[in-house]
């Protein structure tokens, strides 16, 4: 029988990451979609970097930054008594950074695709920017929100390089499913590796399938 802890850890990590990203991603995407701030291209580039950067690069820098020997790792260690390297908390922060574009980009393009008169109409009706965002903009980009949540969830499950660097593959603590597969293969347990791989395969396929079905239905409904 295989150890289920890596799978549970993977799902836990993905769930918390997606939740945090949803909270962070909406204001960030909203700001990026509306701002004409001069440094906006710089921010956009930073947000999208994890798309192209080798995960090991990100993992390496996070490892250095989270280390209790350097800033800001030493500060966090002192203030909150949290050690971010080789810990689940560290994995969460690394995953949030690593999956950021998968949340921000769909929401941003969703917001940008809405006609500007929609929010202007809301402003002339006396509603603040915040009310407009909650009541008008977000409800009209539900498919983008769903895409953002699911992509960042699935992408976190699929992480390998970053979690290996920052988490260090500690059983029951930071050994997530993708690492467990690697471990099993290394010790020539192909059968176990296959079970992990198959479960991950099934989970990610199902999630993506549900998104495409739901979004397809939503688009059909609004097109009438």
């Amino acid at each position: 029988m295989i150890d289920l802890r890596p799978l549970v850890l993977s799902l836990e990590l993905a769930f918390i990451t997606a939740l945090l990203l949803f909270i962070i991603g909406i204001p960030l995407a909203y700001w990026l979609s509306g701002s004409d701030f001069k440094l906006k291209p710089v921010i956009s580039a930073i947000v999208s970097m994890p798309l192209v950067l080798p995960p090991t690069v990100l993992g390496f820098y996070l490892l250095v930054a989270f280390s209790p020997l350097h800033f800001p790792g030493n500060l966090i260690n002192e203030l909150f008594n949290i050690r971010l390297v080789f810990s689940f908390e560290g994995l969460i922060i690394a995953s949030v950074i690593y999956s950021l574009p998968f949340m921000v980009n769909p929401i941003q393009s969703g917001l940008e695709s809405l006609p500007p008169t929609l929010k202007e109409a809301s402003y002339t009706l006396g509603k603040s920017k915040f009310q407009t965002l909650i009541k008008i903009l977000l409800p009209n980009i539900k498919p983008s929100l769903l895409t953002g949540i699911v992509l960042s969830f699935a992408h976190t499950i699929g992480e390998f390089g970053v979690v290996l660097m920052i988490g260090g593959n500690i059983p029951g603590k930071t050994r997530v499913a993708s690492l467990a597969i690697y471990d099993e293969v290394e010790s020539l347990n192909y059968h176990n590796a296959n079970i992990y791989a198959l479960i991950l395969f099934a989970i990610t396929f199902t999630i993506l399938l549900i998104v495409y079905i739901l979004n397809g239905r939503y688009l059909k409904l609004t097109k009438i």
Partner: peptide, 20 residues
């Protein structure tokens, strides 16, 4: 004075009703 505080009614060419 921000739009919200002007109390004008605005009708847009493209209707701009809230689809949700």
């Amino acid at each position: 004075l921000p739009s919200q505080k002007r109390g004008v009614g605005f009708v847009f060419q493209e209707y701009s009703l809230f689809p949700n």
